[in-house]
């Protein structure tokens, strides 16, 4: 077994890198793959919270690098999905605690035991990004349909290209079909026109993301929302399967109809 090492990055903060990493990792594990999600955001770790594993973190990958513990000791196994692991970051250290060579060595150590190594990259283009990207072969660039996010994604793509990462694929996150229809939000094609890389998935804006984040349960574990389906589709595409893009307009329409129905029937929103 030799894992595919994929970095999830964006440049801009708050676009959904960590959420994407957690959900794609969980989805890949659901498809029977052995996956480790590595939180490369040293000092600002969040992946453990989103995956609901924060209470089980004892060691982190800085401990592994500094040989305070073994890799096996630092890995946190998710008991809900077979084959899903987390390698947390240190919260009490800074990004200077690791260098690109150490990150490459860590990924090499993980490769034989997994099918996928997903690296959750910190925001920015400095050391944290360079460390995370150093160990990866492929990249997923996450952007939201906003001009600053797209510009930062473009910057990151340029840097990834110069580092020789391939393929570099795009996730458009938090798209609101209604706003796109009204001309108030960048459309998928507008973004692709600027970024000129392959699109691997479009994730619609979905309030269930907030619930899932706060509950510490990746959405792809329950498949109860449009965003969960979108992430599952992305995981399938990563596995090389041909999955058509979701019809987001129907989701937008369904959302409106559901709201109308709830208004007239007084029905409660499904949790």
């Amino acid at each position: 077994m030799s894992a595919r090492v994929i970095v999830t990055t964006s440049g801009k903060g708050g676009v959904g890198k960590t959420t994407s990493t957690a959900n794609i990792a969980a989805a890949l594990a659901k498809f029977g793959k052995k996956v480790v999600a590595v939180d490369a955001d040293v000092g600002l770790r969040n992946l453990d919270v989103i995956m609901g594993l924060e209470n089980r973190v004892v060691y982190n990958f800085i401990d592994v690098i500094e040989k305070t513990c073994t890799l096996k000791q630092a890995l946190v196994k998710d008991k809900r999905v077979p084959g899903l692991y987390l390698l947390p970051a240190a919260q009490t250290r800074t990004k200077d605690a690791v260098n690109p060579e150490q990150m490459v060595a860590l990924c090499e150590e993980l490769k034989p035991d997994f099918d996928f190594v997903l690296l959750d990259c910190p925001a920015g283009i400095e050391g944290g990004f360079k460390n995370a990207a150093a160990g990866a072969d492929e990249a997923l660039v996450v952007t939201t349909p906003e001009i600053p996010a797209v510009r930062d994604a473009d910057r990151i793509i340029g840097m990834l290209e110069s580092m020789g990462k391939s393929p570099i694929r795009l996730i458009i996150n938090r798209l609101r079909p209604n706003m796109v229809q009204d001309g108030d939000m960048l459309a998928k094609d507008d973004i692709l026109d600027v970024l000129s890389i392959d699109l691997i998935g479009v994730v619609p804006e979905d309030e269930s993301v907030i619930r899932a984040t706060n509950n510490g349960e990746p959405m792809t574990m329950t498949l109860d929302s449009p965003a969960a389906h979108a992430y599952l589709n992305i995981a399938e595409r990563l596995l090389g399967r041909e999955v058509p893009l979701m019809d987001l307009e129907s989701y937008a329409t369904r959302g409106l109809l559901t709201k109308l129905k709830q208004f007239f029937t007084g029905g409660k929103r499904r949790r």
């Binding site: 510009r151 930062d152 473009d154």
Partner: peptide
């Protein structure tokens, strides 16, 4: 330059 130039280049 035979390619597009990205942000930061």
């Amino acid at each position: 330059v035979y390619t597009s130039m990205r942000s930061g280049q």
